[in-house]
């Protein structure tokens, strides 16, 4: 099964990629190729037929994970498997580490990238919730230079983000959550493995209980969302099951059930129920085991 014909260019740097984008903007549709595990299947089935493919996966300045005292800088072309294997990510961004470990399967994680995942903005992808919970900043390069987009403002809708057609997501900055408890709980689609519902949780705690909480969900709405009512209910709460259950029951408070995703596998009403259950599981997993991840079905 071959994709339609296209021209392929391998960008050897960010500027080269931006030049190629500019050069081919008139020629027809142009797509950026990262790990290719969303784009190539779409091209093979004819859902996507770009005229030009610009491969950005080899750009050196967009690879790898670096940590300083304040946080992580992750190149957009860093593969899931590198996130999963990284001690720095486990330490400083435990919710992201947990979510990355639940993307696809081993082979997919060996190819797919964090930047491809976030820029593609599949509503059912596993990383948007974790990016929101981790308070990530997404760094984008364009003709006018670099700009930073907070994760809270990055996702617009299904497959739509704040990244412009002449721009490129180059890296993801994450403030250190060293010492916080993080987890990701996911209800995978039985066929595709994508998240019907996925909840990423990051909790700061002290001896008295929870001091701060950031909770992000994917698979529920047409883009990743923060679950602010849950965060509010947890903050200054104690670390017991009642607090967690009460907080999780508020997972859908800010969300319009009529606007939730609905498909053959789960109606919007069912997703609303799953959201509460998986919020509770994510919170419980975060508290019980610093960076554990849960894939229950």
């Amino acid at each position: 099964m071959y994709p339609d014909e296209f021209d392929y260019y391998n960008a050897d740097g960010v500027d080269d990629a931006l030049d190629l984008l500019d050069e081919h903007s008139e020629a027809g549709t142009t797509e950026l190729l990262a790990g290719g595990h969303s784009l190539l299947p779409a091209m093979k089935t004819g859902l996507s037929s770009p005229d030009v493919l610009i491969d950005i996966s080899d750009i050196e300045t967009m690879q790898g994970i670096s940590a300083d005292g304040d946080g992580l800088s992750i190149g957009a072309m860093t593969r899931y498997s590198d996130l999963v294997d990284s001690e720095e990510v486990a330490e400083h961004a435990p919710a992201l580490a947990a979510a990355a470990g639940q993307v696809g399967d081993v082979q997919v994680r060996n190819r797919g990238t964090i930047g491809g995942n976030l820029a593609h903005a599949d509503p059912a992808a596993d990383l948007p919730g974790a990016a929101l919970a981790s308070d990530a900043t997404l760094v984008v390069h364009g003709p006018d230079g670099e700009r930073e987009i907070p994760a809270d403002e990055f996702f617009f809708g299904m497959y739509t983000t704040d990244v412009g057609p002449d721009e490129l997501l180059t890296r993801i900055e994450i403030p250190s959550a060293d010492g916080a408890h993080g987890a990701y709980a996911k209800k995978p689609s039985p066929s595709s493995g994508y998240a019907m519902v996925g909840v990423a949780a990051l909790l700061d705690t002290d001896d008295d209980g929870i001091t701060a909480a950031r909770i992000g969900a994917n698979g529920v709405m047409d883009h990743g969302v923060r679950l602010s009512p849950v965060e509010d209910a947890l903050t200054d709460g104690s670390l017991d099951g009642d607090t967690i259950e009460a907080a999780a029951n508020r997972a859908g408070d800010d969300l319009d059930v009529d606007m939730m995703m609905s498909d053959l596998q789960a109606s919007n009403e069912f997703r609303a129920q799953l959201l509460e259950v998986y919020t509770e599981r994510a919170l419980t997993a975060a508290i019980e085991d610093g960076s554990s991840s849960v894939a229950a079905d």
Binding site: M1, Y8, L33, G36, L40, V106, Q107, V108, N110, R111
Partner: peptide, 13 residues
């Protein structure tokens, strides 16, 4: 050295 699915990778890559 890494397991990958060769139907989802361009030969040129």
């Amino acid at each position: 050295g890494d397991a990958v699915k060769s139907c989802t990778l361009l030969a040129v890559q």
